[in-house]
């Protein structure tokens, strides 16, 4: 068709050509789609429902823990300590790289098998690479009179529960 052979009219200096406009539009669409994919991917990879154990643990009746005892609750990963001032609970997860610590009664210390951190009964670090003391966890008494430890609730040290 001879009409198509015609020269396209020159584009004025201060305007973009049709090709440039569509080029920018295309680039904008791709950027938007890319950003959307990133957001979508991030949302998809973050689980909304987790089937992890509840952080709240029933540690039974308080009178099973003699004064001066440190009891390991391996399932929950906590220590129940009955000191002279009262009850408290410590996380058994090392603050260094997350290994499970163990109560060593012969040393009177909590020891981590991975990199050698050691903590005293109050969770204060006495040796090793751990950057922080073992966190104190909230302890309460249920209506039935059981000790309840909430692993998700870290409390400041030296909050004792007296029964």
């Amino acid at each position: 068709m001879p009409d198509e052979q015609k020269q396209t009219p020159p584009v004025p200096q201060d305007q973009s050509s049709r090709r440039e406009v569509f080029g920018k539009l295309g680039l904008g669409c791709m950027l938007a789609a890319g950003a959307g994919s990133l957001a979508f991917g991030y949302e998809f990879l973050s689980p909304n429902v987790l089937y992890e154990p509840s952080p709240i643990t029933n540690a039974g009746k308080p009178d099973q823990y003699p004064v001066g005892s440190v009891t390991t609750n391996a399932e929950a990963g906590i220590y129940i300590v009955h000191g002279p001032e009262g009850f408290y609970a410590l996380s058994a997860t090392c603050t260094h790289l997350g290994c499970r610590t163990a109560w060593a009664p012969e040393l009177g210390l909590i020891a981590c098998p991975c990199h050698g951190s050691r903590f005293n009964q109050a969770g204060v670090k006495v040796a090793g690479p751990a950057p922080n003391p073992l966190p104190w966890l909230r302890v309460s008494i249920s209506d039935e009179g059981d000790l309840i430890v909430d692993r998700s609730a870290v409390v400041p040290p030296r909050q004792f529960l007296r029964t």
Binding site: L45, S46, G98, C114
Partner: peptide, 20 residues
């Protein structure tokens, strides 16, 4: 466990990277 805790030492994004 240890390796993923090392991941969370990345500034700002660390815990998120570990979670993902």
């Amino acid at each position: 466990t240890v390796g993923s805790n090392i991941m969370s030492a990345v500034p700002l994004l660390g815990p998120k990277i570990r979670f993902l």
